[in-house]
Amino acid sequence: MTANTMKTAKTITDFARKFEELKKSKRKALIPFFTSGYPSLAETERLASIAASAGADFLEIGMPFSDPMADGPAIQFSSHQALSTGLKMKDTFSLVERITNKTELPVALMGYYNPILAKGISRFIKSAKSSGVGGLIIPDLPPEEAVELQESAQEQNMALCFLVAPTTNPKRYSTIAKSSTGFVYAVTVAGVTGARTSFSTSTDTYLRELKSNISKPIIAGFGIANGPTARKMVRHVDGVVVGSAFIELMRNNSRTAARKQVGRLIEEIRKSLDSGNNK
């Protein structure tokens, strides 16, 4: 291993170390999501740096798919835009490599299962690993169907983050937790991704229930779009993912304006998360 790959290889250990650090400093994890290649690869890279200095702890990078079944209009739009520029999987890998070299933040890659299958599971995980991806989130792959992927991931020390939903039978919590070697991704709503203004009153109970059943780090995502919601959602868990809100900002503003606003929103959420902790 060269010094360079040593530096960029983010692994389960990096995820675990990061969560240890956060725990010690009583800091909740803030994980911004960006779609690879939207509006351009250079822009995603720039936004990653902005996120890092605005207070992000991890990054989630979306690998576009033609049929993003679990995603709402914003991420659908960004995925189709990115793919229409001819974006390839290898472009996303080099993007992650540049980001991890620059920012030190662990990166989780979000992608649907078919492109991974098409590449070949073992080849995919090796390429992801060598580009610096630390963990994987695959929304259409429940643990029951992931046996082969789990073997490859284990071999490569790649963290897997399975999803749990408000509708999940609590009997499955342990299966999902056991399979998740990075964090457990707690979907906050029955629905697709996308900024929301209101959440069901039962969300809080569900997240508390999860935390009391699962000892691994839990990250809440889907619908979180601003500081106050982030703070509410993070009460019982270890961090939040925010995604569609940034894509909306990029969609509705010029690039320079979007950069500023994305940075500001991340700072706002950071502040909310931190103030929540002090209470």
């Binding site: 259409d140 429940p142 169907e145 509708t167 999940t168 999902i176």
Partner: peptide
């Protein structure tokens, strides 16, 4: 075959 779905629909 199998069941490659978002977690939310698994219970259904």
């Amino acid at each position: 075959g199998g069941r490659f779905v978002p977690e939310t629909v698994n219970v259904a």
